[in-house]
Design a binder for these strands. Structure first.
Lengths: 268, 268
DNA sequence: CGTAGTGTTGAATTGAATCAAGTGTCGTGG
DNA sequence: CCACGACACTTGATTCAATTCAACACTACG
């Protein structure tokens, strides 16, 4: 059984029980990021996830409905387009992409999901997933059955508030992407994408200037509405101008300020 | 009373004494769609809006927090980018567009909102509106203060459920737009746009085959990531092929099936 | 009834796609 | 542990869809 080695950007490589090892009952043994035995209270992402600002008792109630499933391998599906919707998922480690397959062959990537982010909200409205979601690398998730989340949200105002905020953030993010796709040049899209990934890694405590891209150039292209060739060319071009360094999927943002200039200002 | 006409962000600016100026007293008289005296119970859109499946008592509680403001004129702002977020709004009549102004001049349209639809969710996440919203024509709205909606949602499970669904639908819709912008040709975008407007009008009981576009070609272009010229050309081209009829902003969908073929299948 | 905004149409230009031909990298099984 | 095959990525030449530039027509409303 693989430990962690295959997962490059491994995030919580250890996660020594953040604040106090609390949780009387919970016999937390393994703290491997892919472990299934972690509780929300001991998860180092709990300040970025659904449990923000929950007190101990509330967090325990949330814990009770969260299912910590076996890790997924690269290429495993979390759910598929048209599947019945049952749960949303918090990414604990690894990463995912969501995509739709257009009847006319080629699929299009609709999103990437990194640790601390919530995936699966595309099924809430009509109880059927509008996308498929697939692991880009070895990954682990927390499954939160939606019906139970709704019930618990009625009892815990903070939880309801958090989930409204999380959905609101998804809406705001999607609208920003709309702007990017409808008005940015290929170069602006790539610069914006890199900056976005950077700040999402920063959010979970990873380096905002050196990171590993879990997705292929093709995935990036589909997401940004560009071809693989264009993505490749532009990464090379940005490197030649000393804005970034590219070593396969290892990226270093050398000159963030100039990247932001390319994007043109008020980007994330 | 005078002040408002200069357009600008009127609405909430005055808002007669917060909640219950109406209610209890409210002698619902006019049923004109622009009237402010309508209650959710008597609104012809209530089966498409927040109150779906609420019983009478519940609907009355919702009614109590809804503020029915004076109508807006074409060009009036409902809210502006960076405004503090206070409420979401249900469009009762007329239509709106939301947009952002890129620092580099040109704004980009992020959405259109027709009767029965909810606008303003872009402010939920960080309590600041990410977009501006402006009336495209004479319009009236129901303002729903978000804090009160949250409180009431804790008491009314159906209301909480409805609002989760509405936000989920917004997410799903935005992701579909993502696919359109990242992979459709200009022609496919226009066809998809027309079909989308068509079914949104159908939803509120209007003709899905003959309708009036409340937005300019420029708005459509910004929304779809195309130029005015391209929008104009393609509408003309679709007309020449007898797929649609165009008379300025009056549109007739003559051959919906072939329009769907253009889009390529599984579109809305 | 004039003018500013909206819409149309044509010709020239161009950014990104497509087509094509590679090289590089990784995981698997022999 | 190496070799093989499948993907992933890069780079160049060419094409094309949509933009840009430009000029003009419509219409609507103060």
């Amino acid at each position: 059984m693989p430990s962690v080695e295959s997962s490059n950007n491994s995030i919580a490589v250890d996660a020594p029980s953040e604040h106090d090892t609390h949780r009387a009952n919970a016999p937390i043994v393994k703290l491997c990021p892919h472990s299934t035995g972690v509780s929300c209270g001991s998860c180092r992402l709990n300040e970025l996830c659904l449990p923000i600002a929950l007190n101990e008792g509330e967090m325990e109630q949330l814990d009770n409905i969260v299912e910590r499933n076996r890790p997924l391998k690269k290429g495993d599906h979390l759910y598929r387009q048209h599947d019945g919707f049952k749960s949303i998922f918090a990414v604990r480690s690894g990463s995912f992409k969501s995509y739709v397959l257009s009847s006319s062959g080629a699929g299009r990537v609709t999103g990437f999901y990194l640790p601390g982010e919530i995936i699966g909200m595309d099924g809430i409205a009509d109880r059927t997933h509008a996308n498929s979601a697939i692991a880009l690398e070895h990954a682990s998730i927390c499954e939160i059955p939606f019906n139970q989340l709704e019930s618990l949200s009625l009892k815990l105002p903070v939880l309801q508030h958090n989930f409204f905020s999380i959905m609101g953030a998804e809406i705001t993010k999607d609208q920003k992407v709309h702007t990017i796709l409808s008005s940015y040049s290929a170069e602006q899209r790539i610069a914006s994408f890199l900056l976005g990934i950077s700040s999402r890694y920063a959010r979970v405590g990873l380096s905002p200037t050196r990171f590993h891209l879990p997705m292929t150039r093709g995935d990036i292209g589909e997401y940004l509405g560009l071809t693989v060739e264009t993505v490749s060319r532009l990464l090379t071009a940005l490197q030649k101008r000393d804005l970034i360094e590219v070593d396969n999927r290892e990226i270093a943002l050398v000159d963030k300020d100039r990247l932001k200039e390319i994007v043109g200002a008020d980007d994330l």
